[in-house]
Every structure is written in C-alpha cells, then in structure tokens.
Design a protein around this nucleic acid. Structure first.
Lengths: 197, 197
DNA sequence: CGGATGACAGATATTGAAATCTGTCACCTG
DNA sequence: CAGGTGACAGATTTCAATATCTGTCATCCG
C-alpha cells in the first residue's frame, strides 16, 4: 500500500521523524508529516509515542546518544596516559559537535532548538553521561598519580563547564571563526596544568 | 510644555530609552514610545540618534560599560597578590551579572536580547575591554613570578572563555540553581592551579 | 537660524477569521 | 484480536487585511 510497507516500529518512526525535521525544521515538522512520510495515518504514530513531545524527546535522545557512544571509546581506549586521554576526549567532543554543526547545519539548528524545548531530563541525563565519562578518566588519573583533586566528580564537572564554549550548541556560530582552535587549546592547556600533581 | 522640559540631550534620551525598555521589553519598545516618555516628537529623537538600531546600541554600550567600570577597580586595587586578584575579578564579574539578572529580571532579559541583536562591535569591544583587564592582571602575575605563561593575552582569553558559563547571559537561568557556586569555585580552582608556576 | 515638529511613504507588527494540527477513540480489517 | 484507521473537539498556526512604526524632510517657531 505505502511505498515502504514494512511493519511500523518505533525505530522507523524515529528515522522518518529525523528526516521530516531535517526537511521542515522544528517549527513546521508535524506528526501528520511524519505519518505521511511513512504512508500511515497519524493515529498509528500515536500508538508508539504518546505525545508529539515524547516523539521529539526520543529522537533528541537518539541524537545525543550517538555522541556519547563515540566518546565512550576514548574512555575505554587502552594505552593512553591520563593527560592525553583528557585532551583527546575534550578534542573529540569539540570535533564531534563541530562536525555535526558543519555537515548538516539545518539538522544541527533543529536539534539545538529541540534540546532547549525538550524535557530537561533528556539533556541533563546526556550531560550526566558525559561528566560520568570524564569522572572515570580523572579518577584513573588520580589513582595513577598523574592528577590531584579532592573529588574527581567535581573536577570532571568543572572540566566540562570550563569547556562549555566548545560543545554547547549555543556557541556553534563561533566554531567556524578563525582562532577558535587556538582558544580551545589555550583553555585545555590551562585545565590540564590545573589537573597535574 | 512637557512634564520635563529641560533641553533634550543624548543622555536624557538614553535614560528614557532604558525606562521604556524596562516597561515594554525589547520587542515592543518603539522610538515613538521613547519620544512620548520625553514629551517630544519622535523626530527629535532622530536628531540625536540616526536610527533605532543606533539608539539601542548606545543604551546597550552604556549598560555594558557599567560592569567594565566596576571591574576596573579590582585591576587597580593595591595590595592584592595576583592569585587573589584573579579570583576576586572573576568572582566580581559573576556577582555583577548575577545581581543584574536577579534584581531586575525584565531589564536583564531585555539587554540579553539587545546584546544578541545589536551590532557585533559593541559586544566584542566589551569583551575586549574585559579580557584586556584580565591580561593586565596576568601580566603582573607573570612579572612577579606568581604565574607562568607564554602569552598573557592568550591566557587571559582562555580564563574568560573557561568562565563563560558564569557571565554569559545565556546561562542566566542556571545562576540561581543550587550548586552553581560550587561549580564556579571548582572551575576557578582548576584555572588558578593552571596559572601557577 | 538652530532646533523641534508632524505629515508622509515604505517597512514592520498586530489581529482575528480560516486552516491545520494534536490527541482520542469507536470502529475496521487481515 | 493486534494493529491500523479516520472523524472529531479543542488547541495552535497561518494568512491577509489593518494598524503602527521607522526614517525623512519641508515647514514652523522662539
């Protein structure tokens, strides 16, 4: 009946939603559009997601989790000294965000809006995931004697906050300005020096 | 003729503009409103400011400069060691912004909008002023042997950017959350440690 | 004559009626 | 009978007509 008449799964709906969001932007993407893209009635979409907000939340979480997974690889990578691991983790976060912003500006702008309007919990869980990863790196650094701190978790949050400028979508416009790379390195340098014993 | 029939000066217009902005907000504050508040025709306002944008720019600059002046006192204050001076300067910046945001939320929100829509130069000059002050503090710190850095100006920018979260109006909502004070101190602690020889 | 005025043209914002969307649910259909 | 449908009520958005505002300037006034 429809062009893609496989069974309707949450995953297929999320894919269609992302496509509709990319095409129409956050303001004009409707549940009806998503249903149309899937060749089903909008009632069917509501069978998988209770509200439009829940759908947007799910698609946002999916997007944020992709970054979390990339960074987890750096936490787990063997053979890095703690200092290098922190540098690479922060650089990877910056690079991932910058790539998203540059490669598909429409979609990035869309998700930037979604993260501000979506339920606070999705974003704060994402931040908790990321600072959790950083905490692990710092903790290992302290254990091996490379770093000093009273409390790895507090220090991890400080590292994350001090680098907000280089991962908060709010600053995305400035990520293509010349000199940002230098600013990033100067901040990281200062922070790494602050971590050292 | 009007309730306040002194001569019409740029300063009086700026005062009236701030009042109109506080009352009506940035979206609904018009040049006609400002003229009405002063008991003159809007043509007279255009005699002092070429455009509405120029008027908004001037009132924004005036607002930003007030903070710059407060902080200049800390740069010049005698008898502070460099580390304390950095701590106090950053704390004063945070405190000044937080006070503005808390004491008069309407006006603060208004100026937050103005700084995003106003000509880039006003804001970047403000930032240049502030990082200039920080550069001076860092430079003295290096000269007295308290700090190490290749380039005080770069380091000053890094200090400013690493603390964006605690002075960028974008984050104002989070300045009243519990724990912000702790986050601020953790970031400053890390940065100060990074400055030390 | 220096400074203020208000009528005016084009740009921008407001408003309210019509169109669309969200979320529900009784009813299909394979 | 599990999964899908589409009509429906209330909420939200769109659109075009109307009102207001911006910026200019010929004219006025002390």
């Amino acid at each position: 009946m429809s062009p893609t008449s496989q069974t309707l799964t949450a995953e297929r709906i999320l894919e269609a939603t992302e496509e509709v969001l990319r095409r129409h932007g956050p303001a004009k993407a409707t549940v009806v559009d998503v249903a149309r893209a899937l060749g089903v009635s909008h009632g069917s979409v509501y069978r998988h997601f209770r509200t439009k907000a829940a759908l947007r939340e799910a698609v946002t979480k999916r997007w944020l989790d992709r970054t979390t997974q990339v960074l987890a690889a750096i936490v787990a990578a063997p053979g890095l000294d703690p200092e290098t691991r922190v540098r690479e983790w922060l650089a990877a976060l910056f690079a991932a965000k910058r790539r998203k912003a540059f490669d598909d500006p429409e979609l990035f702008a869309t998700y930037s809006v979604l993260t501000t309007e979506t339920a606070e919990t999705v974003v704060s869980e994402h931040i908790a995931d990321l600072t959790g990863q950083l905490t692990e790196i710092v903790r290992v650094g302290v254990d091996t004697g490379a770093f000093t701190t009273d409390d790895p978790a507090t220090t991890a949050v400080a590292l994350f906050r001090a680098t907000d400028r280089f991962h908060d979508p709010h600053y995305a416009r400035e990520w293509e300005l010349p000199g940002v790379e230098g600013e990033f390195e100067a901040v990281v340098e200062l922070l790494i020096r602050g971590l050292r014993r």
